[in-house]
Nucleic acid binder design. Structure first.
Length: 569
RNA sequence: CGGGGCGUAGCGCAGUUUGGCUAGCGCGCCUGCCUUGGGAGCAGGAGGUCGGAGGUUCAAAUCCUCUCGCCCCGACCA
């Protein structure tokens, strides 16, 4: 490819709309352009990278016995009514009507449509296991699309669905996918970490998310500093603390009322009373399936709503509004406490052991001190309700949890019968008995993966593509294309590289060297071959490695061969 | 959906408060000269429904009303 012909409109300045480095670089290097919020056009460079990632995904899916298909984007509403997700997905779905007023949606995911396909085609255990996948556009009307292709409303996803006859076979599928994912992300040059996760609206009992650890990640994860435990904070368990000796030994004080005018937050309370938040008990009022419930966590802890919802076994959970709070506690927001509260109370494990706690007094401007579990208040149930955080004990070993942010690039789910049951997808087993198919689904955000690769592979000058996904592996730059010797040498090297199946761009533009170097760095060609007067005088050309900034010279005649060798490494 | 901000040339912005001549600047783009190891220089040039609609006024980028879009924070989410 000639640079003069390549449609890669690079930008010198950072577009105002882009905040994330990957978004800025994708726009600046001419990979993408925005069409409308959360919807992007891929220009040649962007599309080439997408294809490289897709190629890797395909290879690994095929290797794991996946068979590629293509499911429709437009899906009939009826199917979604059958699983109840027409409502559950709600405003998140792009919905449309045809001329006969029939309702459709643009597929946000494809469990329904594939299960509907399979239920009429798969009849026997002999046809199992079956693993089908596609690489397809998905549509989700995100509340707030942002970060370029990282969170778009139209995005590309690889989704594989597994159909198995029993739990053992499902586990094999799950493991095969898990391992395929590790290979895919490694081949993409990504440092990922699988973490245990909550299954959210997709449902199912076991799931891992594959996280690219990055400052810009939207998901918070914790991982152990000494074993392999890692989990999304929504899911992360907390090792129960041993009853702290000094706390338990402390003598119980008498409960006392303290006037705390206008003190409604933990921070204010800390400075007002001059004591630490770990001596406080926070009382949060929730509406669980429309009924009020109080949840207690220690002052310095954060309540985890996912855990609370599971603990309560409710289907809806939301913080109570201020009117409700005043009605059930008798005090404005900020003064709720467990003492004398007559509604269901659940407490995090760390709460009962707090001696002489400070709690809200259920009266305006009042808190109570010296409050003790059982003597002064009681709870209905105790459980793990709080968010894990850095410094907590690992639930699997004696290590300590560390916090990090991650970009979720993939997720594997065991779905079980969540979709085969409502959609009635069954097969006949060895004994002729009808049984429900066990399903799994396994997604990779392909477009998001491209952005994640940039997040992990860039420097102040631009992108540093791993060779495996680079839009072109090398660029050949003659310093002065008007110099015949340089031009001829450059063209010869360019042709030899092409002949050796190295994807290469020849920067034949009549630009000054600085411009070409800047563009090459920005676009991120892994390898750069510079033909200039300095080295050519000695019959040499320069090979430069984008990522390491390493440079060395080789004889002109060996250039293509040496470059190809460098790309192999 | 709540809060905040922004729409002026391909990109980045000034001008709007206090209405006034032909709407500016930098980068990019085109032509020529010149230059060629890190976004050079000189000269000339093209490019604008000032997001849209309506209104006020002798006069609107500027004031008023409505509307569309985009960005950020929050709630939500793979």
């Amino acid at each position: 490819m000639l640079m003069s012909q390549l449609y890669a409109p690079t930008l010198r300045e950072v577009p105002a709309e882009a905040e994330l480095i990957s978004h800025q670089l994708m726009l600046r290097s001419g990979m993408i352009r925005k069409s409308t919020a959360g919807v992007y056009t891929y220009l040649p460079l962007g599309l080439r990278v997408l294809h490289r990632v897709m190629d890797i995904v395909r290879e690994e899916m095929n290797r794991a016995d996946g068979q590629e298909i293509m499911l429709p984007i437009i899906q009939p509403a009826e199917l979604w009514h059958e699983t109840g997700r027409w409502e559950d997905y709600g405003a998140e779905m792009f919905k449309l009507r045809d001329r006969h007023e029939r309702l459709f949606c643009l597929g946000p995911t494809h469990e329904e449509i594939i299960t509907a396909l399979i239920r009429s085609e798969v009849r026997s255990y002999r046809q199992l296991p079956l693993r089908l996948y596609q690489i397809q556009n998905k549509y989700r009307d995100e509340i707030r699309p942002r970060f370029g292709v990282m969170r778009g409303r139209e995005f590309i996803m690889k989704d594989l669905y597994s159909f198995d006859k029993d739990e053992e076979q499902l586990q094999e599928s799950y493991t095969a996918m898990y391992e395929a994912y590790e290979r895919i992300f490694a081949r993409c040059g990504l440092d990922t970490r699988p973490v245990e996760a909550d299954s959210g609206t997709i449902g199912g009992d076991m799931t891992h998310e594959f996280m690219v650890l990055a400052e810009s990640g939207e998901a918070q994860v914790v991982y152990c500093d000494s074993c392999s435990y890692a989990a999304n904070v929504e899911k992360a368990e907390v090792r129960l603390p041993e009853v702290e000796g000094e706390d338990a030994a402390e003598t119980m004080q008498a409960m006392a009322r303290v006037d705390t005018p206008g003190v409604t937050t933990i921070e204010q309370l800390e400075s007002f009373l001059g004591s630490k938040a770990d001596r406080f008990v926070k009382t949060m009022l929730y509406m669980a399936d429309e009924k009020p419930v109080a949840a207690l966590v220690r002052g310095d802890h954060t309540l985890n709503e996912v855990k609370l919802q599971k603990h309560l076994g409710c289907t809806t959970l939301a913080l109570a509004d201020s009117t409700t709070i005043e009605k059930v506690t008798g005090a404005p927001v900020g003064f709720a406490g467990p003492v004398g509260l007559s509604l269901p109370i659940v407490a995090d494990c760390a709460v009962p052991v707090v001696r002489n706690a400070v709690v809200g007094g259920n009266e305006r401007d009042l808190h109570l001190t010296g409050v003790n579990f059982e003597r002064d208040y009681n709870v209905d149930t105790v459980g793990d309700l709080r968010q894990a955080e850095a410094g907590d004990g690992c639930p699997r070993c004696s290590g300590t949890l560390v916090e990090a942010y991650g970009i979720e690039v993939g997720q594997v789910f065991k779905l079980g019968t969540k979709y085969s049951e409502p959609l009635n997808a069954a097969y006949l087993d060895e004994s002729g008995r009808e049984r429900l198919l066990l399903m799994g689904c396994y997604g990779i955000g392909v477009s998001r993966t491209v952005a994640a690769i940039i997040e992990q592979n860039h420097d102040e000058d631009g992108i540093c593509w791993p060779v495996s996904v680079a839009p072109y592996q090398a660029v050949v730059i003659p310093i002065n294309p008007k110099d015949e010797t340089q031009r001829d040498a450059a063209e010869a090297i360019y042709r030899s590289l092409s002949a050796e199946s190295v994807s290469v761009v020849l920067d034949d533009r009549n630009e000054r060297p600085g411009v070409k170097f800047k563009d090459a760095d920005l676009i991120g060609f892994p390898l750069r071959i510079v033909i200039g007067p300095k080295t050519l005088a000695n019959g040499q050309v320069e090979i430069g490695i984008r990522k390491t900034k390493e440079k060395y010279t080789v004889p002109v005649d060996d250039a293509a061969q040496e470059a190809a060798k460098a790309i192999q490494r």
